[in-house]
Design a protein around this nucleic acid. Structure first.
Length: 116
DNA sequence: CTTGTGACCCTAA
DNA sequence: ATTAGGGCCACAA
């Protein structure tokens, strides 16, 4: 079985996250329970890339980190993960807007260092 | 080089 | 509240 001959030609994602991805995942790990950051917040916090790049990282390797603490700018949970995200918000008492479908960004947003 | 595609974001209407 | 359209950035074909 030595596949080192033909190599990886149709590999979708490399064996592991690259440097940028590591920074994203690292940041997500730092978000305290009950708090969230938007995709755009994380991009700004890192100072590189944009919301879509952060989303791409989360899509590929977000499974190992508290992915539900990364939400859209309007407080809605990651596309395609609504139900699972909502149950996490309940269990860690994340501040929600009336209706309980979206996170209350004004109260739950986390800025990185300390809170307000 | 041009297109198409995303766990996105902002502004209007 | 919801939709439509453009902007955005990296990547693959």
């Amino acid at each position: 079985m030595l596949q080192s001959d033909h190599d990886d030609h149709h590999v979708e994602h490399p064996a592991g996250p690259d440097t940028y991805a590591e920074e994203v995942l690292e940041t997500v790990e730092c978000i305290p329970p009950g708090r969230v950051m938007s995709y755009g917040d994380i991009a700004e916090y890192i100072g590189n890339g944009g919301p879509r790049q952060v989303g791409a990282v989360m899509s590929a390797w977000g499974g190992g980190v508290p992915w539900w603490r990364v939400v859209r700018a309007d407080g809605s949970p990651p596309a395609g993960h609504r139900t699972r995200a909502l149950s996490h918000y309940v269990s860690e008492s994340t501040p929600m807007r009336p209706g309980g479908e979206r996170v209350d960004m004004r109260r739950a947003r986390w800025f990185g260092v300390e809170q307000g």
